[in-house]
Measured scan of single mutants.
Amino acid sequence: MATGGRRGAAAAPLLVAVAALLLGAAGHLYPGEVCPGMDIRNNLTRLHELENCSVIEGHLQILLMFKTRPEDFRDLSFPKLIMITDYLLLFRVYGLESLKDLFPNLTVIRGSRLFFNYALVIFEMVHLKELGLYNLMNITRGSVRIEKNNELCYLATIDWSRILDSVEDNYIVLNKDDNEECGDICPGTAKGKTNCPATVINGQFVERCWTHSHCQKVCPTICKSHGCTAEGLCCHSECLGNCSQPDDPTKCVACRNFYLDGRCVETCPPPYYHFQDWRCVNFSFCQDLHHKCKNSRRQGCHQYVIHNNKCIPECPSGYTMNSSNLLCTPCLGPCPKVCHLLEGEKTIDSVTSAQELRGCTVINGSLIINIRGGNNLAAELEANLGLIEEISGYLKIRRSYALVSLSFFRKLRLIRGETLEIGNYSFYALDNQNLRQLWDWSKHNLTITQGKLFFHYNPKLCLSEIHKMEEVSGTKGRQERNDIALKTNGDQASCENELLKFSYIRTSFDKI
């Protein structure tokens, strides 16, 4: 039985969820670079991206490699990797027998973001014989899940209580170790020597080791999670996991709180800001991140802002960003909400898709409305799209047979046209069989910064309504002859009103 693990408890099935942008060198404390989270699957090609990484700022997932063999891993080693800020997950990587050479110096898994409450997941690794993470000293947050690894031993010899604050939620089941077939031998045991430290858990006094050649490092209890030197002297209180010299914040392997210019500090002093819960960055760093993602459509890219001495992905609820200094300031009234469309555009074809934009005031991208039916549609669209004030790209209304009016965009005031449909149009209306009105132009103002209007096959939309939009939106004169079809717009509506004058002759039985 794995020490510190839980057996036999019912657990939810383990679901495996399925960018080499360097964020800056980590400095003297770390020998390499800070790398983003990685999802490495199918083959070993991307694994080489770990070569210079000291910190993975995010998670590391290595999974679904069915053609790899043990010899493929023999020359692979990433000794610079010290810390993973989120979680480490391995799933069905064939041929991998140990992690001792792959990650010989991995010391800390912070667990800032977890995989279903777990910071370390080893699942269905069919050839893994031992973990071998002999320098792993601290899992700051989260638990361990090690399950269905039929060859995995050296679990009962690990004292997880020396690595985690609590072992109650560890789930370590259905491994070879369960069948008591392992016969784990710690260093020196074969020669009758006791080389590794022994600890007591559940009444068992057991030597602690990761492999037959690597003991588990056990520091004096007084050192807590700070770690200790090879001689057993406690590291500085700002260290986490390990250090090369005692009581020196510049000799830590990793930091308990924050890293700044080669030393570990309790908090980031001005003019620095907390970033990702582990390091200090200056304003320029946060500003660069903001600008890199301002026009990016890459998933996970955030326009970072500053709030409460932190550089964070977005302002919290009730705050909006001051564009001059990136500071989050309290909103006066309802907060603006910028919604970034991942692929640059979004099609609204149902109430469900409209709900995804609920509360958005600025759309960074283009909207395509293609709704053919739905219950209580006008009210639903207004509830979900009615706060949109600005669209950076274009607005396209296409084959939306259920629409009679666009009044559900009740606050839309600006279409920038930074991206144009077919390279020309910022407003595009095609084949809307029941569209009769755009907006009530006596109450609604709309500016279209650039781009043209396109109207074709809107049989109940009168040309007068379209011409009014040209005047109000500032697009009059931009359109070419064929942009607004004269014969297919309003051709099934009563669009022309003329005053009919009647004269009559009164007659009676005795007068003409």
Rank of each mutant, 00 (worst) to 15 (best):
V34E: 10
P36A: 15
N43T: 06
T45K: 10
E49Y: 07
L50A: 11
C53T: 01
C53L: 00
I56A: 01
E57G: 03
H59K: 15
I62T: 01
L64W: 01
D72V: 15
D75R: 07
L76H: 05
P79C: 05
L81C: 01
T85V: 09
T85D: 03
D86R: 06
Y87D: 00
L88A: 03
L90M: 13
L90A: 11
L90H: 00
E97Q: 10
F103N: 00
R113P: 05
F116M: 03
N117H: 08
Y118W: 04
V121K: 00
L128E: 00
L131T: 04
L131R: 00
Y134H: 01
N135F: 03
M137I: 03
N138D: 05
I139C: 03
G142V: 02
S143D: 09
S143A: 09
C153W: 00
Y154T: 02
R162A: 13
N170A: 07
V173R: 13
G183N: 11
C186S: 00
G188L: 11
T189I: 13
P197G: 15
I201T: 05
N202P: 04
W210N: 01
Q216K: 01
C219S: 02
P220L: 13
C228R: 01
T229F: 05
A230M: 06
C234R: 00
H236S: 11
S237A: 07
C239G: 01
L240N: 13
L240H: 15
C243Q: 01
C243I: 00
S244Q: 13
Q245E: 13
V253E: 06
R256S: 08
R256M: 14
D261G: 06
G262I: 09
V265L: 09
V265K: 08
T267F: 15
T267L: 04
Y273W: 15
W278E: 05
F283T: 09
F283K: 15
S284G: 05
F285S: 06
Q287F: 13
Q287P: 02
D288Y: 08
L289A: 08
K292P: 08
N295E: 07
H302V: 11
H302T: 12
I306K: 02
N309C: 06
K310Q: 13
K310H: 04
C311E: 00
G318R: 05
S323C: 11
C328L: 00
P334W: 13
